[in-house]
C-alpha cells in the first residue's frame, strides 16, 4: 500500500498553546453530526475533561491537564479526534473497505458496507473508532473530518467554531506555518510537530509547549501501519501456488510410483502389496 502523501489535502493544524479549553469544538461537533448528549459526571475520567472518553456519541473532546509553571497552577489542553492518517490502518484492515482516505483529506466511513467486525478498532494506533455498544446491530462511529462540509468548500465544524487554536488548509501550507512558529518561538514550543511523521503522516498536526507524552499523546510508530501487515500479505499468492504446486507434484510422483509398482507386481503375478513393506 503506497503512502498517500497529497500535499494539497486539507489538514488541521492545532496549536495547543493557543487553546483556551472553551470546548466550542466539542459542541460544534455534536451539533453538526447530530450526536446525542452523554450523561456524565464531573471528574469521572482522568481530570476535568468531560465526557471521560471519546465514544459513539463524542467524536472530539478536549482533554485537560493541570501543571505548575513558575509556582502557579496552569492548564494544558489537548483536542482528541481522528488523525485522518495519510495511510490509515483502519482502511487497510477493513475486509469490506468501509474506510476511505479521500483526496480532500478526511478519512470517511461507509456505514452501508460495514459488517461490524471491529478490526478497525484493534488496528487504529490512536484508538479512534468507537462502537455502538448499546445497539443490537451496532456500527462503528468516528470523526468524519466533516467531509460533507469540506466537499462543499466549508471548513469542518470544530475548525469553524474554534476562536484561537485551529488552522485548516492544504497540508503543505499547514506544515509551513507550523515550522515557522517553531522557528520564531523556540522558547514557546516543544520542537516537534506531532502528526508530521506519526503513523506515516496524518492530516492533523499538533504543536504544544508541554511534552507530548504528558498530554496523553501516544508514541506511535513513524512507519505507515498498513506496511506491517502488507509485508506478510504480499506473500499470499506465492505461498498459495507454492504449497499447491509442491503438493500436486509430490502426489503425482508418489501415485505414479505406486502405479508402476502395481503394474510390475501384476505382471509378475506376485501378490505383495507395497504398503506392508513400509512398516
Amino acid at each position: 500500500m503506497s503512502a498517500n502523501h497529497n500535499p494539497k489535502q486539507n489538514t488541521f493544524l492545532i496549536d495547543l498553546t493557543k487553546c483556551t479549553g472553551c470546548r466550542g469544538c466539542q459542541v460544534a461537533c455534536k451539533q453538526w453530526n447530530q450526536l446525542e448528549a452523554e450523561e456524565t459526571e464531573f471528574f469521572s475520567g482522568e481530570g476535568y475533561q468531560n465526557p471521560p472518553a471519546m465514544s459513539e456519541y463524542t467524536f472530539t473532546r478536549i482533554k485537560f491537564r493541570d501543571y505548575q509553571k513558575n509556582g502557579e497552577n496552569e492548564f494544558a489542553f489537548y483536542k482528541e479526534m481522528c488523525m485522518h492518517c495519510d495511510d490509515p490502518a483502519c482502511a487497510s484492515v477493513c475486509p469490506v473497505g468501509a474506510f476511505e482516505k479521500t483526496p480532500e483529506g478526511p478519512v470517511i466511513y461507509k456505514a452501508d458496507r460495514c459488517i461490524g467486525c471491529r478490526f478497525c478498532m484493534v488496528a487504529c494506533p490512536f484508538g479512534v473508532p468507537k462502537y455502538e455498544w448499546s445497539k443490537g446491530l451496532p456500527l462503528v462511529r468516528k470523526c468524519t473530518g466533516c467531509y460533507s462540509r469540506v466537499k462543499e468548500g466549508l471548513k469542518p465544524a470544530c475548525a469553524t467554531a474554534c476562536p484561537t487554536a485551529i488552522e485548516y488548509g492544504p497540508r503543505d501550507e499547514m506544515v509551513k506555518i507550523a515550522k515557522e512558529r517553531l522557528a520564531n518561538h523556540p522558547d514557546k514550543y516543544i520542537k516537534k510537530i506531532y502528526g508530521l511523521h506519526e503513523a506515516g503522516g496524518t492530516s492533523v498536526l499538533y504543536l504544544t509547549n508541554l511534552p507530548f507524552d504528558e498530554l496523553g499523546f501516544k508514541d506511535v510508530t513513524q512507519r505507515p501501519l498498513p506496511d506491517y501487515t502488507w509485508q506478510a500479505l504480499r506473500f499470499v499468492p506465492a505461498s498459495f501456488l507454492a504449497v499447491g504446486g509442491t503438493l500436486s507434484a509430490l502426489s503425482w510422483i508418489n501415485h505414479r510410483r505406486e502405479r508402476l509398482m502395481n503394474q510390475n507386481a501384476t505382471s509378475e503375478q506376485a501378490h505383495t502389496p507395497a504398503e506392508e513393506k513400509e512398516e
Binding site: P95, V96, A98, R113, C117, L137
Partner: peptide
C-alpha cells in the same frame, strides 16, 4: 455487529485486509 451483511466480504474486496 452486522451479521446480515457478512456477505459484503464477497462484494467489496479489500486485498490489503487480513
Amino acid at each position: 455487529g452486522q451479521p446480515h451483511k457478512g456477505w459484503h466480504v464477497l462484494r467489496y474486496w479489500n486485498l490489503h485486509s487480513p
